[in-house]
Amino acid sequence: MGFFFEVLIAGLLSGVMYSLVALGFVLIYKASGVFNFAQGSLVFFAALTFVGLMEHHLSFGVALVVTLLVMIAVGLAIERFVLRPLVNQPQISLFMATIGLSFFIEGLAQLVWGASVRGLDLGIQDEPIAWISDRTGINISKFDLMAAGIAAVLVIALALFFNRTRIVRALRAVADDHQAALAVGIPLQQIWAIVWAVAGFVALVTGLLWGARNGVQFALTFVALKALPVLILGGFESIPGAIVGGLIIGATEKLAEVFVGPYVGGGIEGWFPYVLALMFLLVRPEGLFGEKIIRRI
């Protein structure tokens, strides 16, 4: 039984990391109704910038602040040069633009900082917490727990930030209809600028935590793909959805790997979340907390 809980807890903790990635998507989706393909690239860009600055002998704190400023600047630039000309264009155009953007950002990051794989040390050890292991026999990674804690703080902060009903309503209105939102006086451009800057900040935190765990490398951009099942499960426009979806995906993929995997030869962790998402799409296509899909017959 102890082993079951150990797997479950490890799953939930890694689920929090997925939630963190998904959160970046949710922010953009809430404000423009578009799946931001470039979020993974932003994560990569943030981690690479941070590591690159550290290599130039900046202290941890200074590098963090500079990277944060860079990410906010990137967010504002995206609004100004990519989104603003695309106001009121079909959603698919915006989506295509984020695909182009992701290639651009990946290329830019590697042009500036080089393509070599780097390590990132946040000073947190990835080892079991002795205190808990001794008492309960369950091994919980210190790093996972810290990462989950940081993610939780970020999620709460964002939830508070977007808690004001007036802002939330405006975001939902913008996602529904750009032009109508403009017509009633919602300042679309400012809202997009703020949301992209915040998404840049989320990408930074995600990049640091994932970079510290997996190394800062190109594969970091694929972390974004793990967010997809989380979003399908939780709903694309819901912050609580991203959290719950992340926890469910994290827990089930670890449990499936450990308890079902041996019967089918293992290695199901990689694709199990997508199967879960697919089943969810059949039953509840809008996700657990997403906006109801409006269908008129």
Binding site: D176, A180, A183, V184
Partner: peptide
Amino acid sequence: VRRGVCQVMEGRHCFAHLTVEENLLTGAFT
């Protein structure tokens, strides 16, 4: 809109996923 000119667009353009009351409240944004 702040100066008092507001357009009601052709084809209504209501926010489909918002309730009628929420739609009305978005109008009070400014």
